[in-house]
Design a protein around this nucleic acid. Structure first.
Lengths: 284, 284
DNA sequence: TTATATACGAAAAAAATTTTCATTCAAACA
DNA sequence: TGTTTGAATGAAAATTTTTTTCGTATATAA
């Protein structure tokens, strides 16, 4: 009726507050077992939940579908295991093409999962914190120093004073110069890199606001940082999670960058025109 | 009956030869307009095709579904436009969450598209070339030098002598030292970066084998390099293609790396055990 | 307290799906 | 050639599922 399109789960969440008790029961069930609904009739579902078919039907209408069928179809479109077979390990007989597909899919999966976690987390706070920073500095060691340098290249265009250095001694020195109004972004896949943890220590002494990007929630970095952000990358045989994790880190930083740009425009720091120009530059 | 799972379209194709005329008509129709079926009843479909419901029903059974419903659901799961609305531009009213989603989706799309192009192209040759190289060097300038450094970090673990330097003078010097048996990988998003083109000139003089990674087929870099590889990233308002392009570059290099590792194992350079260890290392 | 609205289920109605059965047609066979 | 067999198909019946209608209960506001 109102609308035919996708996004069943999102729609349920949106309408959740407006639902009656019984309807909330239905909503909970669907959110919990969306895959099952797909192969269940309205009778069955109503019976399982101990209510009348019509109650379920009204629920479908309420969240904006033409009926139960329409909801089922939308759900089916939505559920489909996001990117399939991705997690498959690379096997010995695989040809170049197959290996490439698996590598790419693994990277895509990392992005998908990371995004999922990002939107629920403290990402928004991270954006605000950076927008209000007097100065932002990126820290990373080893492979992560490359990500830090990349972030520097991006953020230099926000107009916020930014800095990054791949030398660990310089990093320590630089960290000791930061203050309360500054923000440090620390990148470490494992969250245990000694050099970076050491930098974190200096930063905390100086009350610098800290944002961490890591793959592991239970790590020194993510536990001690003010705002932890997480990548989600899984390891498989013949494929280090570290590879995908870099893609996810990069994307988090992309996202931070664009959001900061937009936020700054809204605060009137820059005109829309200049902003677009800055973002859309071809060469980075 | 036989099976409940996905892959409706594939299944239709598989069974195609065994189908009767009427059934072929149905198959053709579904393959042509899968999205429509989703919102069509079996009656409707039968009528549209000028046949009986039961014929359509039997078709569903024949290709392995429990019935029409089941087929519809499978189709719905399958159709869902791979990653949707991705290309949507970022709008002024978008909140942090929406912007983040768009950024990530844009990156995922870049990977998807890049992979598509990769498998048809000269990627396999690139892998072979690197495997047989005496020495591999990565070149990039500006933002791309970061990608080159990243590649260096990865490939150092292949055991092949690799090198990368972000200073353009050093790059020129280094390029002049390479010879016929060496391979140079040049990275430039636009394919027009002056420094990198200059390096390419030196390399060609020395008959060094060259692999280029760029977003544009009509660019000095991709036209003059021995083996061009392409990223696919589209620009939108408020979102430079350069951002996504880096993710794609990184993934191409990931893929090259893993493939090279595997190829070398097959050539007996390293044991499977050592190889896995090398790839699976947590910290990069 | 009464009126009104909302939530819900029961049952009826409608629609869609699935099954059954009869017919046609063509190939196989006597 | 006539008959049999079996696959393909459609018509109609049976069944299941979905949707609508309507009545009751409960809560809320006047």
């Amino acid at each position: 009726m109102i609308n035919e399109n996708q996004y069943c789960l999102a729609r349920i969440k949106t309408h959740y507050v407006k639902l009656s008790d019984k309807e909330k029961t239905i909503a909970d069930y669907i959110l919990k077992h969306p895959e099952e609904i797909i192969h269940t009739s309205i009778n069955q579902l109503a019976e399982d939940l101990g209510m009348a078919d019509s109650t379920v039907f009204r629920f479908c209408k309420r969240i904006g579908f033409k009926g139960y069928q329409a909801m089922k179809i939308a759900l089916a479109s939505e559920i489909v295991t996001p990117i399939k077979d991705i997690h498959e390990t690379i096997n010995e007989g695989d040809d170049v093409r197959t290996v490439s597909e698996k590598v790419f899919q693994s990277n895509m999966k990392a992005l998908e999962d990371t995004l999922q976690l990002l939107v629920g987390g403290s990402f928004e706070l991270a954006v605000k914190t950076i927008v209000n920073a007097k100065r932002v500095e990126f820290f990373g060691s080893g492979g992560s120093s490359i990500i830090a340098m990349d972030a520097y290249h991006k953020f230099i265009r926000t107009g916020i004073p930014v800095f990054a250095n791949s030398d660990s001694h310089m990093q320590l020195m630089s960290a000791s110069q930061l203050g309360e109004q500054d923000v440090a972004v620390l990148i470490s896949h494992t969250g245990t890199t000694k050099d970076t943890i050491q930098v974190l220590g200096v930063l905390k002494e100086n009350n610098v606001k800290t944002i961490g990007i890591t793959n592991f929630a239970k790590s020194p970095l993510s536990e001690e940082v003010d705002i932890p952000l997480y990548t989600v990358a899984e390891e498989t045989d013949y494929r280090s999670e570290a590879l995908s994790s870099r893609i996810a880190q990069l994307s988090i930083l992309d996202s931070l960058f664009i959001n900061v740009m937009i936020a700054r425009e809204e605060e009137g720091h820059t005109s829309l025109h200049k902003m677009r120009n800055a973002i859309s530059i071809k060469r980075m």
